[in-house]
Design a protein around this nucleic acid. Sequence first.
RNA 1: GGGCCGUUGGCGCAGCUGGUAGCGCACUUGCAUGACGCGCAAGGGGUCAGAGGUUCGAGUCCUCUACGGCCCACCA
Length: 1089
Amino acid sequence: MALNAASHNPTGEKTGPVTGQPPPLSSETQSAILQAANGDIKGHNAPGQDGGDQHGEKKQKSAKELAKERQKAEKAAKFAAKQEKQKAMQAASQPKQKEPKKVQEKLPPYQEDTPKGQKKILKPLDDEYHKAYIPSVVESAWYDWWEKEGFHHPDFTPEGEVKEPGSFVISIPPPNVTGALHIGHALATSLQDAMIRWNRMKGLTVLYVPGCDHAGISTQSVVENMLYNRRNGMTRHDLGREKFVETVWEWKEEYHQKINRVMRRLGGSMDWSREAFTMDENLSAAVRQTFVQLHDEGLIYRANRLVNWCSKLTTALSNLEVDQKELAGSTKLDVPGYDKKIEFGSIWNFKYPIDGTNETIEVATTRPETMLGDTGVAVHPEDPRYKHLLGRKAKHPFVDRLLPIFGDESVEMGFGTGAVKITPAHDLNDFRRGKEHNLEFINILNDDGTMNANAGPFEGHKRFDVRYSVISELEKLGLYVGKKDNAMTIPLCSKSKDVIEPMLKPQWWMEMKPLAGPAIDVVRNGEIKIMPETAKNTYFRWMENIDDWCLSRQLWWGHQVPAWYVKVKGGPEYDTEPEYWVCAQTEDEARAKAEKKFPGKDFTLERDPDCLDTWFSSGLWPFSTLGWPKKTHDFEKLYPTSILETGWDILFFWVARMIFFGLKMTGKVPFTEVYCHSLIRDSEGRKMSKSLGNVIDPVDIMDGITLKALNDKLAVGNLAPKEVERATKWQRSAFPDGIDECGADALRFSLINYTTGGGDINFDVKVMRSYRNFCNKIYQATKFVLGNLPENYMPPAQAGKTGRESLPERWILHKFTHAAKKVNTALAQREFAQATQALHNYWLYELCDVYIENSKSIIRDGTAEESASARNTLYTALDGGLRMMHPFMPFLTEELWQRLPRRPNDNTKSIVIASYPQYESELDDADSSDAYELVLGCSKGVRSLLQDYNVKEDGKAYVQPLSSHAHAVVSSEQASIKTLSGKYIGTVTILRQDESVPAGCAVYPVSVDARVFLQLPGKVDADAEIKRIKPKVAKAADAVKEQEKLIGSLGESVREDVRKKEEENLKAFLSEQRAYEESLARFEEMKLQ
RNA sequence: GGGCCGUUGGCGCAGCUGGUAGCGCACUUGCAUGACGCGCAAGGGGUCAGAGGUUCGAGUCCUCUACGGCCCACCA
């Protein structure tokens, strides 16, 4: 249908600010076109060639090349013409005055009368709060009722088995307990809950486990900051460990409840009776069991080596918790604990005097303060400049120390001075060289980043202050040479942004290679499917190059390491010998182990005060939440879980670790599928961060918020004034009118609709707003249906067909079942956006715009039987549409579905547990669908003509079918065509195939099957019509020519269906051409009369 | 230094195994009240980043370039 959808306004009247033909091309443009057409194929002047010399030998061009050139020139010409036109349009367009949108009246907040946990009391739809869709009105009360009814519990068979279609289980990626939920969590919850609800409606045994992560470092530092700010600089040490941990628990409770409230607001159908927290007793037992077992197997070990040390948080960190910041050259950076910025990205040169000579040796460093820990100088053994110094010693200018000068092949002669200062205790490379060459390991730093006694005169000073004082002291001694820019990266703590210092500390480590192997295998062999594909590659790359994992953290909040040091009387000091550690679930067990290890020895036990990395317990999450290490019913029946859905940013931190822990501890994969969703950025594509003030709280979208309140929120956070200013500015541009209340359903639908499997999401609140409108559409449609069902309406027992449905009914049922097919397929393939688009399309363009419109006339004008059938179909299409939408919009669909009558013998309590629509071949009816598309095409043609000719009353339209089949269709659907043609139509007459068209009609070619005509009002100006039609004839003829050319060029290998399609296109173009030509002829004839 | 991704109408995005570009917002015109103005109808707007290649045919496949972004990496 609608072949000329792309054609211009047939009347030639202005539809835009410009009329008529584009202005003639400028001479400049014309010459550009000529140049493009005549120029060398490369288009540019070749290097070395005089720009004016066009007489060089030209290579022979093949016909193909020439054709390409011509094509290119045509393209260029077309483009230039367009540019001209656009310019003209711009010039012609005038600033238009727009009426400000009417502001909706604000009702006072809705008061819910339903007692908590009871089934919602539905108020009449003409009530002030129910006339149109208001999210807060629709979303109240339902969640409490669902929870109380236990709809979210897994539904086992009476024997306690998983139901026939199987189980579907998701353990929620546990949010950090101190953080507020952000829009990323809302995305995760939307996707997970959509899958959960869909599977539940399909009849599987479904479980969605909620919970939070204790988030060791984050939580501890949040509470420490709070203490410091609110209680006069109090530190955790002032409080003591026990009291501090107690305080953290209090905070945890408050935030945890906040998080749970938002999860419920979002409609996440978690089973709250199974809620987990990583520091719950059972999950802690899982941690102890895992640690002890892996220690006893030798995979967890104690070692004293360089760790990433954060002086601000005073703890070691794993490599993953360190960010690398790139510096192009000298850069001053803010460092926590310093008032002024510190210089990085430079390389400083200075000289060490050689002991016993007058010579010096020049070295370079990016961290001058580390020279206080230098214990050697390395040069390349073959370097002629330094060969004679090998074996000599440099003298440290500030501390009493001699630094051996030695040869090392890893030193590059060409880099810097070719001499490298060696700091084995504070540099990873130097650590290795120090070991190889037996150098001293001298730690110069205290845990807080100040210098210790080994720094001699600099003891007690902060390390970056020392950076400057070392330089000035060297200068005084004449040893300082100078500095240069040096592009480099510096390691920053991902939490505190402090500069990481490599430090020697005994820590617990986990050997990763033996665990990584099987974890790689299960992904490679498909036992675990990772989507998207790129995330899979990232996983392999990381797993294959994995380093051992530093497990211990010098924190108080978390799982204390279940390890005790055995202090044997007369034996080694605390934590100097790894063999003197025992690991056990309890102290008694530890004692027993120690007695066995050191029989007959007198000893005391000292427990390691450190805690484990947060991700250690998170790594056990999929099975610890189901009860492991206990053999619970949940663990037995529901493990492994189905899908792990999370942001790809924690693929390494979490997903990878769950996989190897799962395999190691349970012998099974923890889940069979990983889906990594996109990261959400702001509307300008920037990462959301607190300091930019562009973090979006999902509650603000659900509830709505004014711009002022949004701005005020910035002030509460601890942002610098400059940051607040920048963030305020951004908010003003992104949300000039604040955020409208959009509700959970629109938020969920939008976020899922953003999930196309592509890159990051640039979040735009306007999108939410449009889906809120979509919610209203669904609301209004339901209102219409309810208003058109008679009192005591009872839908038929079966949703299937009676066989007496009218064409529009057969069409909508066809569309409905195809929508069901699309949505189910899309969800099964995790093509989330395709599912939402199919739903959007069905509701808006099929059910509302077409079937509901068409049903009006059937219900009004049809026989009793016809209108009853139309109503039943209305019910089927709406009820099915709501059920199909439920996984995406749980609240709205429940509210509306509960207002609908049920089919007899259906006592389903809630849409939550109603069945999900599936494709049914009985409803599939392609012939009816095609026939009705013809009807729609005809009515669209009529509407278009009415508008083009500005006919406002009693329009007279004619439909001319072009085949007997088409004649049969349009004849029987005359009423539908009229209804769908709008209120300006007076009569729709169906012409016979061979009947001549009345004089003075404008034509609209619908398809090869039909044309429609409109009787032109008043006195017909044949000349004007001829002028209008001529360009259309030409355009149609062009299309025909193009299409003929295309078909002519089709090779032999072309698929039959493609060829057929192209030939049908040709027929359609031909038909269109003929329609215009005939119309033209009629007007020409009219002129003669 | 290594690896990955993106570039499609003014803006935000879809486009499956190659068959001649769609959607939402915005824009233009017409419609005020028995579902919906949070709406309906009719329209306008696209050298699919650039260059080359494969092909009868490229937004889609290959190569290179530019711009933007991400991840990983111990070089003084």
